[in-house]
Structures are given as C-alpha cells and as structure tokens.
Design a protein around this nucleic acid. Sequence first.
DNA 1: GGATGGGTTGAGAACCTTCTCATCATCCCG
DNA 2: CGGGATGATGAGAAGGTTCTCAACCCATCC
Lengths: 372, 372
Amino acid sequence: MTPSGRPRRATLPDVAALAGVSTAAAGRALGGYGSVSEDVRRRVAEAARQLDYRANRLAASVRTGRTDTIGVVCADIESPFFARALRGISDVAREKGFSTLVTNSDEDLASEREAVQLLLHKQVDGIICAPADVTRVDHLARAQSDGTPVVLFDRVSDRLEADAVVVDGMKAAYQAVRRLLDLGHRRVAIVTELRQPREQDWARLLDPEIAASPGELSPSEARLLGYLRAHWDAGVPVRRELVRRTGTYAADAAYQQTRRVLALKNPPTAIFTVDNLMTVGAYRAIRELGIAVPDRLSVVAFDDLDWTVLVSPALTVIAQPVYEMGAEAARRLIRRLRDPQPEPPATLFMDVALIERESVAPVGGQTPATPR
Amino acid sequence: MTPSGRPRRATLPDVAALAGVSTAAAGRALGGYGSVSEDVRRRVAEAARQLDYRANRLAASVRTGRTDTIGVVCADIESPFFARALRGISDVAREKGFSTLVTNSDEDLASEREAVQLLLHKQVDGIICAPADVTRVDHLARAQSDGTPVVLFDRVSDRLEADAVVVDGMKAAYQAVRRLLDLGHRRVAIVTELRQPREQDWARLLDPEIAASPGELSPSEARLLGYLRAHWDAGVPVRRELVRRTGTYAADAAYQQTRRVLALKNPPTAIFTVDNLMTVGAYRAIRELGIAVPDRLSVVAFDDLDWTVLVSPALTVIAQPVYEMGAEAARRLIRRLRDPQPEPPATLFMDVALIERESVAPVGGQTPATPR
DNA sequence: GGATGGGTTGAGAACCTTCTCATCATCCCG
DNA sequence: CGGGATGATGAGAAGGTTCTCAACCCATCC
C-alpha cells in the first residue's frame, strides 16, 4: 500500500514473481525484445493481466534514451494554419508510434528558446519548429548538434542545416499579384504583418542577391518579395502607400491598416492579404465599408479557410497543403530518427494552388464570366 | 564519447565532481530542494554552466512519480473549438509549470480508450478529456481510481465522479430557440449531429426525469433538449421533419440536411445550428440556395467563430467562453494535483452569451431596427 | 560545559525499466 | 559422440535523478 492507502501499482518484478520467472524474462515477454519461450510469454501475460500491470514508459525511456515523443513548437495552436498542421503531424506521429508535446511560441524568440529548452529537458526524440526568427536559430542548431534532430516547418533558414517543409511563398505571391496586374490593376495593396519593421528590410528585399536566396526570409518577407517582383516584371511601379505593414500579428491591426489604405484619395483597386489573420482583419474592414467586391475591389487572400466560400462573393485564395505539410514534416523527422545518418538535410517546397473564385475581376469591375 | 563519437552529455555526477561536492548536494543546488550553502550553490551552478549540463527530467520523473505533464484528449484539435480550448489549457499549464501532451479521439470511443492508455503509460499527472460517449467512461474512472485525476471538458457524465467544466447547452439552446419562437417563428429547424441515432434517444429526451439530470446527455442531446423544451413551453408543436440529424460529424452532412429541410414544401422560417461544423455546412447550403437572411430565414448558430461577422448579414450566435473553459479545466486539474484531497469534485457551468447580430428577424421578415 | 537545535553534507538506496553477459539446455551435423 | 550453433534464462548493472538518513558543524541556551 502506498502512503495514501491505494494499492501500489504492480511493477515488472511483481509480474515476474507471480509468473515465476526473472524480471528480465518478464520484461522480454512484455516488451517484445530478446527471445522468450511461448510458455513464459503466456504465463507473464497472464500475470500481467491479473495484476493489471501497466508499463512505466518513463523508466524505459531513461534506460533506452528514447521517449517516442516529438516536440512541436508552433506559433499559435489556435490559428487554423497551425491547428491543421498539428493535426497532420500528430496523425503521422501516432501512426508511427510517437506522441506529440506541443508548445506555443507566439512568434516570440524568447518563448521559442524556452520551449525548445523544455522539450530538450523532457528528452523528446526530435523537434518540429516554426522558427520565430529565421536569422536566430542557434538554439535549434545546438539541439541538433547535441543529437536531437530538428525539422523546420513553414520557414527555412539557411543558418541551419536541417530538413524543412515549406511553401514557396514568393512564387505564390508572385503568381497571385501577377494575375491582378494582368487584369489591369495598377494599384494593388498588400496587407502584411512583418514584425520588425526595420528600415533595412525594404532594402534587403531590393537587393537581388538576397532576393535570390530565400533562406534568409520569413514567410511574410518572401510573400512581400513576390509582390514586389510581380510589379517589377510587369513594369508597374510599387506604391509605398499601398504596402501596409501591421507591425504586430493581429487581425485588428490588419483591420486598421486596411481601413486606412481604402480611405486613400486614390484607393487600391485590388488587395492582397498575406495570411489568414490578415485576411480576417482586412475583410472585416472591406465589409464594414460596404465596398463592392469584386466590382470596386478585387481580393486575393493567402490561405484557404472554411469561411472563404461562405462570404459573397467567395474569396479567391492561395491554398497551402497545410495538413500535408505537417504530415510530411513528421515523416521526415521520424525517418531521421529511425535512421541516424540517412541523407543530407533537404528543403521540401510544397505546391500551392491559386483557387480562383469570385472576388477577382478585371480592373474597372465586370464580374468574370464564370462565377462558381 | 558515445559510440557515435559525440561527447556524452554531462550528468549530475559529472557536475558534482567538477564542483567538488557530492551528487546529492549538486542535485539539491540545481533542483532547488533541500538546503544548500550559498557557496556550494555557486560552485555547482558554475560547474553546470561549464559542462553545459542539461537536467534529464525523465529520470527525475521516474524517481518522483511526477512528470509535470497533463494529458489532453480532445475530439479534434483542428476544430476551432478545441484549438482555442487547448490554447486556454496550455497557457495555464505553462504558467504553472506543466506541459501538455495532446491526443485526438475523433469522437471515437476506441481511440479515446487508446489515447488514455497511452497517456497513463507516459505517466501524465492528470488528464483533461472531452469524452466521446458520456455513458462509457469506465476507462476514465479507472484512471482516476488509480490516482490520475481527470477533469471532464465540454461534457459531463454522472457516471464519473470528477470535476467538469461545461456549458449549460440546454439552457443556451432553450434561450436561442425561445427567442425565435417569441418572434413568431412557428417552423424552426435544428441541424445537429447526434452520432448514434438510436430510436430510444428521442424517447429519452421526452422523459422528464432524464431530462432533469443532464449528466447523461451529450452536448448535442442537451441542445436538442433545449430546442424541444422551448417548443413545449411556448406551446408550439415540434415538427419531426424540422429536426435534422446528420448522424455523422461532418460539415458536408449538415449541408445535405440543410438543403433537404429547406426544400420542404413547407420550409422552416428559422434555423438553429448546433455547433461550428454544423454551422459551416448549413450556411453553405443557405448561401448556395441564395435564400435571403433574415428576410426569408432567420439563423442562429451555436459557437461564435471569427467569420460569423464577416458574412452578411452577420450571424446571431450563442458564444461559449471557450478559452476560459480550457483555462479553468486546467486550473482545476492542477489544483487537484497540488492538493491531493481538496474538495469533492464539482461541475462548473460556465455562462454562454446570446450575441444578437443581423441574422434574426421576426417571422415575415422585417430586418430588426438595430443592425450592428 | 553539556544539551538542544537548525542548517549542511554525503553515502547509498530507490524509482522501474532495459541491456549485457554468462550459463545452460537443446539440437544439428559430421 | 564431440563441436558448434541456437535459443532461453536469470543475475546484476545501468540509466540519471531524488530522497532518506545519519553525521557533522556551529551557534545558542541554560
């Protein structure tokens, strides 16, 4: 009996004793390693059943050094993007016998560091992380060099030799914005967070050399770059007042910025929102102002959300394979866990799809011929 | 060096040796238990820093029996409801020094059993669970009697003596439906999942005795009961053809059912959807059919989602304090962990709010005077 | 000056597994 | 029938921590 009066849970020696074998044999019988006779296996199983034995996987982990757990650091589990990705991760993980320990960084580097620290203390076998700052990944590098593999998710960093699963945000944004420009739009607004609005950011994006290697860019920066390039290639000048940064990652800020940009003397005829939170805020502003979409304003949003088909007109969006991205990240991590030195780390770029619905029209405003 | 060539991580004895103290002393110094002199504390800290010591919390857990981890069994992490609740849970958990191990049951009893089993193997300190079937909770009862406290979330079961954090779904639904009836609606449809459409369910809900103790009802059943009661109290007969069950928990099914109910010769003038997935499906049908809301159809939805203000007209909804529910569940669980025998388990009913927006009008169809 | 008591300290057990290794029985084969 | 391979078994170490306990120091108090 424990001090609390509850009967203590049966342990391996208890089972072994009841079955009349050694602890080692009982362990083998239940753990499925080593070799045991059929007879012993049966007796041990029976004893375990009788005692309602429940293996303590913690103890096993101390011994083996494996916990069959993968740690996930996401920005915010509440966001549909991460929620769905996590579903992909945990489905694959479960299938392969792993659990998932989830933490939120809220896009804050310090929280992320703390989270990684915690995961390492808890001895997770590997980590999937959406790094808050792709230029500050030393903690991940250290985890990795200490033997805990890392897979980057949603964001690459060329300062870390690790697998990564991402989307080519630059290409996707380019494609969407190019489409708008081709339809004759000359004033296309973009609503983006972009946390540190360092003045040199803008310059960085203009630098063709940096622009060529997206490993230094956050997703938002990459998408902004796509926006800029589409303009350059189309020979349309970029209007500074149409590039709206919220500075903070919040729908409300996007709402404010959108109201402001739509209140310009010379307002945009199209707007591109850079992720789901920005879309929510921007769309609220558009709706509140009662602006006719797509007649007066065309809208393209990054990320497909279930409500984008519920509003009228339905939103044209860039859809990322979010679930699959999560699943693939988990697959890669687990592959690396199983096979210590498989192949050199690689970045997987997954395809996005531009889903044309009803919120885009040629400038001037006729609705396109084929609404859906 | 480990076989792999990497230097082995420093352990407590290593630190102790470098600091020139016993392992026990080093453990005390770093772990913050027992008593140590200032001098020792400093030397140990310095040694730990030099060796880049990282505590193995697994080993500690084996010894202490605590893992500072709480297990969560939710139906589907991808649903906005659970995603937000999980955020509440993990915020509180983190603040109090706990991690969260997350599993999905997909509303399937077998998966839930498996998940609980896994959590127990991993020795979580406690479990927060949204049980798939409130009448089958033996596995949770066993976990609890074995010393792993359980807090029910979103659903009560009177077959389990445990804390629970829920919403009074019956009252909420009653309130919403009553409002519709008071506005003159006589044909109010309800779209609900309700997994096992056992024929006796209906009878159960009619039985006043069972209806009095909601501890046997799933949230969907409770909400249906609220719907029924509102009718009884208002003296409005319940039309069987207006009660639409999807049988399966999917937006598509809700879409189908909604199309069907709206295609009746004598269609409803109002519709009540029972949770977020049902709302998405039902609203898609309404939009596709081009039915004017609220002029021809009033709409009330359970659960407030970010898009309910983005559609026009904005949806009138019943809002649950989802984040707070998660947070409170975590608080209760942790309180019980800290204090083995605090008070008897209790069910906390949290308040819902009926948020009136633009999707409800008196029957016949004028828009109400105060749109927002 | 001895008793009391609180703060420090280290030895070693404990937690519950897995793993190594030596032992032993069995079996196959030449 | 000897030699070697194969498989089953148990003793005991290992994994990295926490905890118990006895010993010790030193100050205080009578």
